[in-house]
Amino acid sequence: MILVFGSINLDLIVPVPALPAPGQTVLGEALRTEPGGKGGNQAVAAARDGARVAMAGAVGEDAFAEPALATLRSAGVDLSRLAAVPVATGAAAICVDPEGRNQIAVAPGANLSAKAAQVADGDLGPRTTLVLQREVSRQETEALIARARGLGARIILSLAPPEPLARAALEAVDVLLLNEGEAAALAAMLGTADGPAALRAALGRPSVIVTRGEKGAEAATEEGSLHQPAFPITPRDTTAAGDTFAGVLAAALDRGASLRDAMRRAAAAAALTCTRPGSQGSIPDAAETDALLARGVTAFTAP
């Protein structure tokens, strides 16, 4: 089973002709709303890839709550560990330019009320893959990592956004997933270089994966280094691509795939996500990822 502990947002998306500079107002197209949040995105990605997924987090008692949960429900994610709290549901304001680049500002809201206690010890055994990010409370995330390590769960941490986390928590995870900016921030904190091998050497335990966009993804593991080339694409919107990579990686590992094979599948799913607009609506299902993998690494665009 995959258990995601993390954020659930409603995304407010505005396509714009160019990303705004500081102090600049840019007129965009019609506003779209869509379920999002890094935790929710990762849970949907894993579920659409065929995994059995449960989600622990928090939403508000407001009008944003049900729309924020809609895709999780339709993907079959178990929401029995969800809390409803008397604060606003998390929300993200997203600007997307014609080249697929984005700027995102997040109001965490109810996400900061998510508690590690919502996850029972029985959920954290060796058959569970726990997936976490950094859009909920640092203290609750660290507490859940410590419990999961003691109970034998596999732990995947996406250090996004790159907010501080105790070194002991970082050393306790099995797979640490970062993009280039997050890797640079962690390297500065640890006083080392920002490549996966240097980060793994500084932390000791976890396999470290650094995603590098069109340059693919690199990993440092106990067995050595891995490189997964990117699938060449024409990007339309990169929102949720990193979360798709994390969720599909977790689903593949949970099924028993090697890290190399899991990275390849995750890269294919993330590439498909980039060819479509939106957040959770852009995440592919298993059949679509299978089809791309069967085609090999060739240039493609969305139909």
Rank of each mutant, 00 (worst) to 15 (best):
A143H: 04
L130E: 02
Q133F: 06
T275I: 06
A219K: 04
L31A: 05
G109L: 14
L199D: 01
T234I: 09
I2Q: 03
T289G: 02
V44Y: 00
A187I: 06
A107D: 11
A70L: 08
T33K: 04
G39H: 05
G39D: 09
R101Q: 15
A148M: 02
A266G: 01
D174A: 08
V119Y: 04
A220Y: 01
T129E: 07
A269V: 00
A287C: 05
F245H: 02
P108E: 12
P206Q: 06
L31N: 03
I104L: 09
I156A: 11
G57W: 01
Q42T: 02
A252H: 03
P235T: 07
N102G: 15
V210A: 10
V87G: 09
Q139R: 11
V53Y: 00
R212Y: 14
A219R: 03
D97P: 13
V85K: 08
S282E: 04
A267R: 00
A268T: 02
E171W: 13
P232D: 09
G195M: 07
G247Q: 00
E135N: 08
R138Y: 06
T71A: 09
F245A: 02
I2V: 13
G109V: 14
R205P: 13
S74M: 07
A286I: 12
V85Q: 11
L199W: 02
L272W: 00
F5W: 01
P206E: 05
T239L: 14
A252P: 03
R276D: 08
R260G: 05
A160T: 14
R101T: 14
A58N: 07
A267K: 00
E66N: 12
V77F: 01
L72C: 02
D285E: 10
L190E: 04
C274I: 04
G296L: 10
P196K: 02
A88N: 15
A51L: 03
V85P: 07
A262C: 13
R81G: 10
Q103R: 15
A286Y: 03
P35L: 04
A172L: 09
I13F: 13
A117P: 06
I2D: 01
V106C: 13
T273Q: 01
R276P: 06
V106M: 12
E29R: 14
E214G: 14
Q118R: 08
A168N: 14
I104T: 13
A185S: 13
I145Q: 00
G60D: 11
A18G: 08
L130G: 03
M189G: 12
G37L: 06
A117F: 12
R236T: 12
Q24G: 10
V131T: 10
T33P: 04
E222A: 15
A169E: 12
I155R: 00
E288K: 05
I94C: 09
A217T: 13
T298E: 15
A172P: 07
G57M: 08
A114P: 07
E34T: 05
R295V: 11
R265E: 08
H227T: 13
N41P: 01
E218S: 15
S258T: 11
D194I: 05
R134V: 05
D123K: 03
G28C: 04
I8Y: 05
G50H: 07
T289E: 00
A51N: 01
D285Y: 02
A269H: 00
A91K: 05
G122L: 09
D254S: 15
A116G: 11
P161H: 06
R32D: 08
A58Y: 04
E163C: 08
P126L: 12
Q42P: 03
